[in-house]
Design a binder for these strands. Sequence first.
DNA 1: CTGAAAGCGCTAACAG
DNA 2: CTGTTAGCGCTTTCAG
Lengths: 342, 342
Amino acid sequence: MAKRRVSLKDIAKELGVSISTVSRGLRDHPDISNELTAEIKALADLRNYSPNPMAMGLLQQRTKMIGVIVPDLVTHFFSSVILGIEAVAKEKGYFVLVSPSYESLEKEKENIKNLMKARVEGFIVCLSQETSDYSHFEQITESEIPLVFFDRVCLKDKVPSVVADSFEAARGITRHFYENQATRIAYISGPDHLNISDERRQGYLQGLSDCSLGYNPEYLEQCNLSPGSAAEATLRLLALPKPPDAIFGINDTVVFAAMKEIRKRGLNVPKDVMLAGFTDEFHATVVHPMLTSVMHPTREMGEIAAMLFFELIGNMETAPRSVELKTELVIRESSVRVEEKK
Amino acid sequence: MAKRRVSLKDIAKELGVSISTVSRGLRDHPDISNELTAEIKALADLRNYSPNPMAMGLLQQRTKMIGVIVPDLVTHFFSSVILGIEAVAKEKGYFVLVSPSYESLEKEKENIKNLMKARVEGFIVCLSQETSDYSHFEQITESEIPLVFFDRVCLKDKVPSVVADSFEAARGITRHFYENQATRIAYISGPDHLNISDERRQGYLQGLSDCSLGYNPEYLEQCNLSPGSAAEATLRLLALPKPPDAIFGINDTVVFAAMKEIRKRGLNVPKDVMLAGFTDEFHATVVHPMLTSVMHPTREMGEIAAMLFFELIGNMETAPRSVELKTELVIRESSVRVEEKK
DNA sequence: CTGAAAGCGCTAACAG
DNA sequence: CTGTTAGCGCTTTCAG
């Protein structure tokens, strides 16, 4: 077992003063003489005292912990958002408990339960793709526990959130394809109940209409965000009598899977099919051809989520704020018609 | 602010008994009558009571928290190890505080300090690539705080660890290359002080010797694990009078970067240069050609790290155990000579 | 200027 | 079988 850490008591005894004197000295209470304060601080430093957070937590009923629930850990998107959250949290002296839901509603609920037991002060959450029932989140808000959503959100009138401008981004991709001579533009969406699926689809439809391209329901595919299901959606598209000449997906993972299938069929990207992704994963530049993708301000998204969280902690009464962040389309090889090499 | 959660006191008052009776009833103490116990449990359930972890922590001087420090969050490798750690931790009622060091010694130290302040009971760590001075870890062991390393380790005689069989794996890759007609085999290593750099290099040398290939120091390159520095190392290899016809790197990220450079130079993988990676990232199958790579039992690595941790918590006296896990070479397109397509 | 005492939620030893 | 008390480390009255 670890040695017991020094407590106020130890310092008090060593200095021959009372515990409360030490406590006061450490926090520059005016009642304590300057010399004594200095002496106390010096010794505390020497013994490298730090207040026991459990004692403090017990006293103030705050754990200084935030529960963060993300669908996945492995993407740049989430790990970068977490980075942003942590940066802001650290400034405020908060810790972050990250629990992946692995896209499962079951896991999501279980994580919430566990984090509640650990007495996190509140939650920052990105919905699992399975989540279409929101009662567990309603319970949280009803208990007046701070809750903020990012990216995949729900209960908009009750819960603050940060999202990307999915609509405009999807519209932009669609137009970009059109400007590069695509006319049969397909979109591989995710589950309908997710806001990001829906908004991106709306943007896609708007983009088609902007370019006076008719909407062909066959070009609107769907998957459950897993590579396997994305591959199947791609195959359905490629099997159409008139297969699309451009595809974009709800995120990069989906498009990576699509790229693999397209290649398997002996088709060329971008010559036969142009591709574009969403969320600009690191690997977009590793694949060949490099993937055109919508870049999200991920770190900023995390920072803002944390800031909204602390607004909430400060005052549960304010109306929920929703922040929408601008994205940027990064154009790479996968969506630009080029002359055949050599 | 969140409503105060129910405490033993609340339940005791509602039932008209004392706090200790409730406490005992909840834990099936034989002194309490069966009916009363049942009654207590029923009410506790109804109000969904759960013990305040801070009160418990204060009392028992344990936080049930493990500090996990990883160089990065974004790779499958680390996120999968974390998954393994969390699974075992959850079973024991422990929480995991994950703090990325972002490969920086500075950050690593800072994380330790913060986690100590949060009173984690111990640490599970993968060294940052910058870490060649280990005094901060020596301090931890001297304070008798449980510490376990995984993958990148140090202080082997004092600290338990889980690692992969880097030596055999690197040797295996080298031989695999040779069996596929490579004779100029290069290795892009990482910082010298990392055990994984060193062991893989030794395995590489052994592999060369196994195949009766002479060791050419020019084919032993080095990088700092960043894609940029890996790219530079690759360029140095390609610029040699007799450039290598096979390259493997200390991890997949390095090899992805190498692949990009090779392609930029108009060379073909595997025809001109065969490639193989280490740690089998998800994206190994996304790139084209698909990357041959050494698969690590990552989740198991996390589980074992956690198990070693709990052995340590149980009894600090046992000699440090070191576990080495077997890896497996997954052969894909990037390292197999094929007839030109068509 | 400083100390003593209460209390945050809980368990365990000690009394009934 | 059940209640009382002390104490984990800390801050905050309340008394000197």
